[in-house]
Structures are given as structure tokens and as C-alpha cells.
Design a protein around this nucleic acid. Sequence first.
DNA 1: AAGCAATGTGTCGTATTGACGCAATGATAA
DNA 2: TTATCATTGCGTCAATACGACACATTGCTT
Lengths: 251, 251
Amino acid sequence: MKKESNLNINQFLKHISLDCVVFGFHENQLKVLLLRMKKTREWALPGGFVQENESMEVAANRVLKERTGLDHIFLNQFHVFSDPKRSNINPAVPDVLEFGITFADENWFSQRFISVGFYALVEFSLVQPKPDLLSDICEWISLDEIGSLMMDHRQILDKALETLRLQLVFQPVGYNLLPDKFTMPELQKLYETILGKELDRRNFQRKILAYNIISKLDEVRQGVPHKAPSLYRFNPENYQKALKEGLNGKW
Amino acid sequence: MKKESNLNINQFLKHISLDCVVFGFHENQLKVLLLRMKKTREWALPGGFVQENESMEVAANRVLKERTGLDHIFLNQFHVFSDPKRSNINPAVPDVLEFGITFADENWFSQRFISVGFYALVEFSLVQPKPDLLSDICEWISLDEIGSLMMDHRQILDKALETLRLQLVFQPVGYNLLPDKFTMPELQKLYETILGKELDRRNFQRKILAYNIISKLDEVRQGVPHKAPSLYRFNPENYQKALKEGLNGKW
DNA sequence: AAGCAATGTGTCGTATTGACGCAATGATAA
DNA sequence: TTATCATTGCGTCAATACGACACATTGCTT
């Protein structure tokens, strides 16, 4: 029996990988879960490979469970990255093999990979970040503090954000990113952060309420300066309905 | 040197395939390019595999060039189909190997494939359908005449159509599906066919014209019963601009 | 107790949308 | 030749959605 830290690459399909852009929202900032590679010290997206009996979605869920401790994460595939040179951008990758990993095939990481990009929306506070075998740090990084990433991961991140922005136009967002109870300004800030532009406070409220996906509670947020804002909660049924049938407005 | 009909599978990446849903529009009907498999007589989407030095997009273009004779086809990837059982749905697939094809690895078709779905929009009249090594017929089939397809190709087709429908809401469609000159009723019929519902003739014209993506010509369509409709032409610059920046309306 | 920053609620003019009317055209049939 | 009629071209109107903005309210801060 192998050590748990061993990566038995024989069980994985060759040439195929997946990378996850995990979005969280905290302190009015959009954050992405990143790993720092042990050797090269470059930051990278959490990713992994596909086992013989897994679909891409199941594999992505497994990878995210390992990195965040969470199950049943909101997850969408958004693009396939298949530039034949994408695996060669960083020749240091194979070097990472040194770090306590036993490989049946030493060339595993030097093969060409076609990677399926997923984006995930998770509630920040629930995540317990765990590095993988090749990384020493796994943590949330604010979107505007992210510089260059390993290989083509920056492109993957940008494409994920672009996709999320488009989704926002005809699908509600927030149920997976905010805590159970939240205020209108918090929800608005989330939308503004994703869209990258400011929205009118009053028009935003009117539009969101018109969708009937959130319900106002008889509580206000305590311990905040100035007037206490009301708390809201997503209406699960209407939210799921809106996810399927789509909204109509533009932002 | 091998015969041209040979398929040298050594040059392809294992486990990875692509399938194309090629849409065309003819006689007011949306059509899809399908192949009929020699042995099983099932209909299937044109597809192929990825060479060592190709991106998925380049591979898809190569496959489509082989099936249609066309280059520079409008092409979008829309989903990855990775159910581990998807390759096993039709156990007859490997039998097709009998038909004059030499394989270095006889098990090529029995391996598991993860397939990237592409949809293509092409001008019907420009296509010269050519069967591939495993099929005897390659032809356009009207959308409403398509029954069950090989493996999960029906799901792939449905997903492509769903994607195309969503795209229609915020991107113009037609430049790749209609001939250079077309009439307003023809364009409307295309939209109605893709959306699967009827649109008001007058409101459609108003909305399409508001996008500034088509220009009215000083010609009318000849040889048609009743009043001769005006001809229009897409404005390439505005069309490309609308493709990138997106429209806003809903249908 | 006054100041003030943020929230809650409403208004107004414009643009968009869906539903529909009607005249003009031109091939078809009497 | 002339009447018919399906189809096209061009418009109206009411309902709604949207962006910009005003104003009162709340409750912490000083």
C-alpha cells in the first residue's frame, strides 16, 4: 500500500486535466483560491486529473473537496484550454516532482495536457484551504492582488471572470457566494465587483427585488456604523427557478 | 507510405475527441450535417481526434475542412462531454474497424473518450459534404427529422442548440448562416427556427434594424410570389462589433 | 443634541417592448 | 384586363423597464 501522499498517476487519464477558479467574497472583495507551488513559488489554480471512472464534473468536485473541505459546490465548466504549448510555458513544472512524490511515470508532468476550466462559487467562511502535494500554501487572494500565475492560469482566471460576468446578465448570482443572511449593500457590492463597475444603489435594489429571488427579513445588521441595513435571505425555490429559466435584464 | 484511407492513430492524443454540430439554413429550415455509420447505420455527428501539435480549435477546423471542404468556419466550443459510460453506450462502434482501416492499436475505439463539443454555423450552399472513413453518407438533415443518434450525440446536439439559443439573446446570428444577400422574412425565419417560436414580423424588423448590423440594398428578390421583398446584407464591421460587445435585448 | 453618513422609498422622463392597424405591392386568377 | 389576395413596408399605442436623481429616515458619532 502506498503512502497517502503518493500520487498514483496510473489511475488518471493521460493528457487531460482540469483547473478550478474558485471565487469567494469577503470584506467586499472578490477573492480567488490559489496555491503556491513549492519549488517555483509561482501561484496556480487548484487543479487535478481525471480518474478512469470519473466524469470531469465528478473529478472537479473531488479536487475541490480536497482543497476546500466542501462538497456539493456550485460548479460550471466554462472553457477548454488546449494550446499545445500551454504545458510548456513553465519548464520548471516537472521539477516539482522532487518533493516527496512517487511517480510510476516520471514524465507525467511533462506530457501535454488539455485542461477543462471550471469556475466555482463558494461561501468564503466555509472554506478550509488545504495545499496539495505540489504546493505549500493554499489561500484566498483578492482579485486585484493577483499578478501572473503559473502556465496559462492567468488566462484561465480571466476567462472565468468573463464568463461569470456574462452569466450575471441572465442568471442570478449570490446564493453560493454570500452567507445565509446578507444586506442589500453587500449584495450590490458583490455585483459591482463581478461586473467591475458601480451601480446605482436605488436602481439596483428595485431590479433585484423585482426578480423575487430574495426575501426581506425582520432583522437589521447589528454593530455597523450609521443606519443599520435590513437583512435579506435568498428564496431557494425562486432562485433555482431563475437559474434555470434565466433572467432578462441587462446590467 | 500508408494509404490515404489509413488512420494513423499514433498521432492522436488518447482519450480526447471532438464532435461538431454543424448548423446550416436552407429552405427555411435549420439543418445539421450528419454522417451515417457504415456498419451500424446509425447517424452521428462529424467528429475526430486531436493531433500532438493541435489545439482543440485547430483540430475541429481540420475535421470540418474534411467534412465540408470549408475553411475558416465560425466555430465555438460549448461543452465537454465526459460521462465515463458515454463511450460504451454503443458497443457496435469498435466493429466499424472492419471497414478497410488499418489501426496500430485495435483498441483505439474501445477506449474511453472525453469529447469537446463544438458548434459551427455555415452557409448551406457552400458545403460539400464528404463522409469519413467510418461512414457511407454525409448529408444535411433537417432538425425536426433527426431522431436518435449514435452514442450521446443526441445530447450533444441538444446542448448545442440550447447554447445557440442563449447566444442569440446577446449576440447576432446569421452572418455565417445566410447567403450574402437575404430578405427580412428569411432572417426572421432563421431566428424563429433557432428559438423555436414565432416572432412578430413588424417587431422583429424594428429590433433587428435597431442593431445596425444589416443594410438595406436597392434590390428586391425576384421570382417570388406576391410582393417582392427587399434584399439586405450584413454590415461586417458592425456585425463583428456586436459579436464582441454583445447586444442587450431579449427575444 | 447636533451632525452626518448611510439606508429606505419614491418620482420623472426616456427607451424598449409587445400587440396590432393599414396602405402598398405585385403575382395570381377570373 | 381587372379584381383578388397574400405578403411586404411602415406606422401607432399602451405597458413596462430603465437610468438619473430627490428627499426623508435612521442611528452612530462627536
